[in-house]
């Protein structure tokens, strides 16, 4: 069962602390969204989990192994896939199938050709094997990234604002694809969109490097005061409810646009 334990970590790039006394644990198949203002430390956390930055204070255990244990860092990296925001800067090969093969080759896996075929087919890019990745459309590039991640068969998937360049439909499609192919895995996604986070199992808010909320989407994303503190735009329905409240109209708490509609229909 995949697991991440973040145990009282603090981190600084040199100036002040960018993360301070941060703790949480995540286990099994679970989708966690992390939200917070620009500079609140979200990407730093991702880099620490993957052992890309040196951790000195506190500890992070990935599948029970400490990221501070240099001998095991390769094992940790093999169990994690990261997809960043900008796919263009992540392609490593001029041909899609070679790009998809990069991870498995790096980890000296067997049956690479088969892995590549399966990965590309899972994201419906089988017909694009020989394409130059840069010539794919935005949505196809994101699929290609997912294929590359899938090829290393990770337990843990970290998405750092991965699909934010896509339109709503495209983003929902990628979210669904990710949820489908990695439903047994641990997914942590970083986003600025509370509406996107509604569908995850759990939501964490960071503010100034500290964890200020950790709970279900309903617990966290309906709380306008918490969201304001973390500089997160509330979900659409929550914003509308808040605006109505300012105009003296009270309606029960809502999280989704569907719920908002239903509540408003009660005014007859």
């Amino acid at each position: 069962m995949p697991s991440i334990v973040v145990d009282n970590i603090s981190f600084s790039y040199g100036r002040g602390d960018v993360l301070s006394s941060l703790s949480f644990r995540a286990e099994g198949s679970c989708h966690i969204s992390i939200l917070g203002s620009n500079g609140s430390g979200k990407s730093t956390l991702v880099r620490l989990i993957d052992g890309l930055l040196p951790l000195r204070r506190g500890d992070i255990l990935v599948n029970g192994i400490s990221v501070k244990d240099e001998k095991s860092i390769r094992e940790i990296r093999e169990s994690i896939a990261i997809i960043f925001q900008d796919p263009d800067s992540q392609f490593v090969s001029p041909v899609l199938e070679e790009d998809t093969a990069f991870g498995p080759e790096n980890y000296e896996m067997e049956n690479i050709d088969q892995i590549v075929s399966r990965s590309l087919s899972a994201v419906s890019l089988s017909d694009f094997r020989k394409r130059v990745p840069q010539t794919l459309s935005g949505g196809e590039k994101e699929r290609a990234q997912i294929a590359g991640a899938l090829a290393v068969n990770p337990d843990i998937v970290l998405l750092d604002e991965s699909f934010s360049m896509l339109d709503d439909d495209g983003r929902k499609e990628m979210d669904a694809l990710v949820g489908d192919i990695w439903k047994e895995r641990l997914i942590i996604s970083i986003t600025h969109s509370a509406d996107q986070a509604i569908n995850s199992d759990r939501v964490i808010l960071l503010s100034g490097g500290k964890l200020i909320a950790d709970g279900s989407p309903r617990e966290v994303l309906c709380s306008v005061s918490l969201l304001r503190k973390a500089d997160v735009r509330p979900p659409f329905a929550v914003r509308v409810r808040e605006s109505l409240k300012e105009r003296g109209i009270s309606i029960p708490p809502v999280l989704t646009t569907g719920e908002l509609k239903e509540v408003l229909w009660n005014f007859r």
């Binding site: 605006s243 109209i249 408003l264 005014f267």
Partner: peptide
């Protein structure tokens, strides 16, 4: 437009009764 929407909903609610 978000603000127009909220004004519209406000009028919608005021013209009706909650039940």
């Amino acid at each position: 437009d978000y603000n127009k929407l909220v004004s519209g909903i406000e009028a919608f609610c005021r013209g009706r009764k909650w039940n």
